[in-house]
Nucleic acid binder design. Structure first.
Lengths: 121, 121
DNA sequence: CTAATTATTAGGAATTATTCCTAAAAAGTC
DNA sequence: GACTTTTTAGGAATAATTCCTAATAATTAG
């Protein structure tokens, strides 16, 4: 029932990073810890870890999928220009109120596309 | 400054559909109105129309990008199992409050992944 | 209106992100 | 320790999207 070495490495890489990583970045970092780990192993385990609720996947428009170690409810701000992804932690918005009763919520994703301060100049 | 024929057809196809279409579906429908229109023309014009705020693009996890004729603020419910995409029109949530002042908001996207009634059985 | 300039197109190649396949290795079970 | 199940590496395949190029269409200037 424990994680395989490879699965643990994927999880470690994500948790060690404070930010948000793409599958490709995770692959590169995991490869340093365990050469020959394969990209399909990365993808398979990312899928499993998301399923298990241990990580979060973030799909923003025109961006590759990012993976996030932070699984507590929060939202995201993505800069359309440089792609930088930032967290917004604000419990004010309770998304569940919006969902009809006969639907079972799996996850929610609020992404705000913007131009960040740096890219406005 | 007017739309080219091709661009107008892309817009028409989206507006004529009440639902949400993928680029591929738009391509098939546009091709009926104008054979030989090319897929890259579809993509280029979808990009432009999104830029101009005439349509909306929706990126949900594990789904192709959908395009929406409805540009008034609303949210989306996507079924993880069958992929069906539905609108939620509810103004209760005001996302802009969450954004730091020095960021310029381009668009917001709230997507709730769920299992729809039909897929729960 | 016609020539020059600019934008857009079709078609296909290329790229990117992701999934699928298979035989070998590892892990878990009895 | 043999059997069963799961996972792996590696690469091929697929899907979605972007890029490239020469030809065409639209716009502007004269």
């Amino acid at each position: 029932m424990g994680n395989t070495q490879q699965r643990q490495i994927v999880l470690d890489v994500i948790r060690e990073s404070k930010g948000h990583l793409t599958a490709e970045e995770i692959f590169i970092r995991a490869n340093k810890k365990r050469p020959n780990i394969s990209l399909s192993t990365i993808y398979r385990n990312l899928g499993l870890l998301v399923e298990q609720g241990k990580i979060l996947s973030i799909s923003a428009p025109d961006q590759p999928t990012y993976f996030d170690h932070n699984v507590t409810p929060h939202h995201h701000l993505v800069c359309k220009s440089c792609g930088k992804l930032e967290d917004i932690c604000d419990p004010k918005i309770n998304v569940n109120d919006l969902v009809p009763k006969d639907y079972k919520v799996i996850s929610t994703s609020l992404i705000i596309t913007c131009i960040c301060k740096h890219c406005q100049s």
